[in-house]
Nucleic acid binder design. Structure first.
Length: 757
RNA sequence: GGGCGCUUAGCUCAGUGGUAGAGCGUCUCGUUUACACCGAGAAGGCCCAAGGUUCGAUCCCUUGAGCGCCCACCA
């Protein structure tokens, strides 16, 4: 049989076949493992969710990395006999997906979403999402990921919708979700709000204008916002302006004529900066908004939601701010209000990172999650938080990590996490786009006999009429931030809320068995978006941490060290690499050399190197199989003292590798195995053993063959989590010992450290 | 303005309180029946700088330099 094996391992021939075999075996599903007695019923649990890739396109190497690492973890734990569950899924990525479809629609058909209407447009998005989903699933399988596909979820499917509505209602009833008019990040291009975390800052050099504002000189980079400025703010301790009193009114000449300005004294003003005086535009600037709130000042909208000036701008009304700016500067110059201009002023402008435009702060009625609002925990399994205790979402998030119930690896990211929480403002969760979970709120349109009813009703199920006055209702047109549903992921995928009753998971349900999940493995770039929000949602809604450990991997960068991203267009399709070098080589190249939390540049050369290793492993197998017949008729071989010593070294290797795996040092584990396999086993042990395989007496030959077989069998098992395809294929070629029907390598037992395999 | 990371062989990067490692690349040799996607061997590094702790530091501490990232309301 061994002679039939080609001298070069061709992954193309085997990978798809092996994956089908795994899938058909059902062993990706822990229930099947228990039913077929592969796993003990009461075995320890290992569970993990796959960070759901966005259905915006194809996978990149960053995804490939997380798949390689996570699958290694999962296969390792499964081989150790744990009840192992890894849940697949995809994310609807509301804004990004909608933006992409809108873009295509406009480019290909010259239409906007409004031309199609909400229903038809959503059909397009869903179709796109479906295709994208299929591509992604195909790619995930190509990587060899041992995910339980029977439990696959989508952030926007029906079950998750129920979870979202339930979460919304629960948080609304606890007064954590509220509707309010506050300053938000408005994207005039996509016509939606976005959260603070979705903003990407871009540096821009623009002229900086110094304007005469009555007796003061104020500076601005955005003269187009200044129409509404009727407050002038300075520090209370600034001696230069000691003669002015807080609340004092002065008459000044401004862009469109004389106005009355009011003096405001506030400590946020930096006396050192510029003239130490500024005017404020509360409707279009977060800092100004805060000042206005503190002193109860008027707020006026200057720019509309399309980015055009409103009537307050007088002659400039209706003009887009981009066009209006030079015109306004021109007018200010003519009126003699422009004191001087700094040409090279760099400041940061906010853009929507989800492929949108330049952010314009606006005051809008939106839905928020109040992160500082106190509420009573209905029940809690969180260390340091008791039932009925008064908490806020911020304190919950802090407590879970502070008390080490959740451990972040590497630890330095603790700081990042805490500082994010400290600076966290209320989370704006409503979006004005169409793709996403509809906000489960209905507004009564009826005026009852006694006057307006106008109730807002939050409901888990759709409602047709107002429960108070029976009048007609209309649903809130907005959708929810994607991360609202992603935040529920660890428990919405495990059956919440159906599998829980009165705050407790039903006995024997997935929720009871697999939550909290063991580990969350993801890139450090989404700590805020996702990791923190999962902690928020899970602790708040089910009184439980979502995961015990967070393992953060670094980012894969391109050859120039740039982040790989859709917008940069420098994405490398892992499928190309798999096609050229095989999934095992691709996986190994993403694990070795990647220290936790550190970025890695990946070159094709590296992948090729590990392709060579795959081939080496294959040829070692061929060699050993050449002599396998010798081994077959042996009973217990007695190994020489040297062989025993080498087996002891192997046992030490097993121990080290296991230790590294437990410590999330996969790069160490894999590198050790690589090195041992090639430079110890192949280069030294096999070479030393060769003479004994051909020469000597029969007993010596049998012993030599058995010896190599012994080591190799162990190695194949140790390597399986990292390179599952080639090891499984080799395993299948091995002669079965005795009459036992051979099982798949993926469910073989992980080698024990103290006895020989 | 805060915080974090990085600086190790030509390139990309691991790593350790005690003569320095991997992949790729370079050079020499090798038509041995597992593998040329190979083997044997070689060259190549004041482990960013300065100070400190130590019997001993690339590793720990301090300071500095360069690069990068994240956060932050300097109009």
């Amino acid at each position: 049989m061994s002679k039939e094996l080609p001298s070069q391992y061709d992954p193309k021939d085997v990978e798809d076949r092996i994956y089908r075999m795994w899938e058909q075996s059902g062993f990706f599903n822990p229930d099947v493992c228990i039913r077929k007695k592969v796993t003990a019923k009461n075995a320890p649990v290992f569970s993990m969710v796959l960070p759901p890739p966005n259905v915006t396109g194809i996978l990149h190497l960053g995804h490939a990395e997380m798949l390689a690492v996570q699958d290694a973890m999962v296969r390792f734990e499964r081989m150790r006999g744990k009840r192992t569950l890894w849940i697949p899924g995809t994310d609807h990525a509301a804004i990004a997906t909608q933006a992409k479809v809108e873009d295509t629609l406009y480019k290909k058909e010259g239409k906007t979403r409004h031309d199609l209407g909400r229903t038809d447009f959503l059909k397009r998005v869903e179709q796109f999402a479906q295709e994208s989903h299929d591509t992604i699933v195909h790619q995930v399988k190509k990587m060899g990921s041992s995910l339980d596909w029977s439990r696959e979820a989508y952030t926007l499917d029906e079950k998750r919708n129920l979870a979202v509505r339930t979460a919304f209602k629960q948080m609304y009833d606890a007064k954590l979700i509220y509707r309010g008019s506050r300053i938000v990040n408005w994207d005039p291009k996509l016509k939606t709000t976005v959260s603070d975390d979705e903003i990407e800052w871009r540096e821009e050099t623009v002229p900086f204008y110094y304007l005469q504002y009555g007796p003061f000189v104020i500076a601005t980079a955005r003269p187009e916002t200044k129409f509404g400025d009727k407050y002038v703010v300075m520090h209370p301790n600034d001696k230069r302006y000691a003669t002015y009193a807080h609340g004092q009114k002065i008459e000044i000449e401004w862009i469109n004529g004389p106005i009355t300005a009011t003096i405001i004294k506030d400590k946020v003003i930096d006396m050192e900066f510029g003239t130490g005086v500024m005017t404020i535009t509360p409707w279009h600037d977060a800092v100004d908004f805060d000042i206005a709130e503190r002193h109860q000042l008027d707020k006026e909208q200057v720019i509309d939601y399309d980015g055009k000036l409103l009537p307050i701008a007088g002659e400039f009304a209706g003009i887009h701010i981009k066009k209006a700016r030079p015109m306004i500067v021109e007018k200010l110059t003519q009126k003699g209000l422009l004191v001087r201009t700094d040409a090279g002023y760099t400041h940061r402008i906010a853009t929507n990172s989800r492929g949108g435009g330049v952010i314009e702060p606006q005051i809008k009625m939106q839905w928020f999650i109040g992160v500082n609002r106190e509420f009573r925990m209905p029940h809690s399994k969180i260390k340091g938080v008791k039932k009925e205790q008064l908490v806020t979402l911020k304190t919950l998030m802090q407590t879970a990590v502070k008390n080490k119930q959740i451990e972040i690896i590497p630890r330095r990211f603790d700081k990042v996490y805490f500082s994010w929480i400290n600076n966290l403002r209320d989370w704006c969760i409503s979006r004005q786009i169409w793709y996403g979970h509809r906000i489960p709120v209905w507004y009564c349109k009826e005026r009852s006999k006694r006057g307006k009813c106008g109730e807002s009703i939050v409901s888990i199920t759709d409602i047709k009429s107002c429960p108070h006055c029976k009048g007609p209702v209309e649903q809130d047109p907005d959708t929810l931030d994607t991360w609202f549903s992603s935040g529920l992921w660890t428990f919405s995928t495990l059956g919440w809320p159906l599998d829980s009753a009165r705050g407790k998971p039903k006995k024997g349900s997935d929720l009871a068995t697999y939550h909290p999940t063991s580990v969350l493995e993801t890139g450090y770039d989404i700590i805020f978006f996702w990791v923190a929000r999962m902690i928020l949602m899970s602790t708040c809604l089910i009184g439980e941490i979502p995961f015990k450990k967070v393992y953060l991997h670094g980012l894969i960068r391109d050859a120039q060290g740039r982040k790989m991203s859709k917008s940069l267009g420098n994405i490398i399709d892992p499928l190309d690499m798999i096609g050229k070098y095989g999934a095992d080589a691709t996986r190994l190249s993403l694990i070795i050399g990647a220290a936790p939390g550190n970025d890695m540049k990946l070159s094709e050369d590296k992948i090729r190197g590990y392709r060579n290793f795959t081939n080496k492993l294959w040829n070692i197998a061929r060699f050993i199989l050449l002599h396998a017949e010798e081994k077959n008729d042996t009973g217990k071989a007695k190994f020489s003292s040297k062989q025993q010593k080498q087996l002891a070294e192997l046992a030490a290797l097993v121990k080290k590798v296991t230790k590294h795996m437990d410590a999330f040092e996969f790069h160490h584990a894999a590198e050790l195995l690589y090195h041992y396999t090639w430079h110890t086993f192949a280069d030294k042990i096999i070479e030393e053993t060769k003479p004994h395989l051909t020469g000597g007496d029969r007993g010596e030959r049998i012993r030599a063959a058995a010896f190599l077989f012994e080591i190799y069998t162990t190695l194949i098992k140790l390597l399986h989590p990292f390179m599952p395809f080639v090891t499984e294929e080799i395993w299948a070629q091995f002669p079965t010992a005795g009459k036992k029907k051979k099982r798949l390598l993926m469910i073989e037992r992980w080698p024990q450290e103290n006895n020989k395999t």
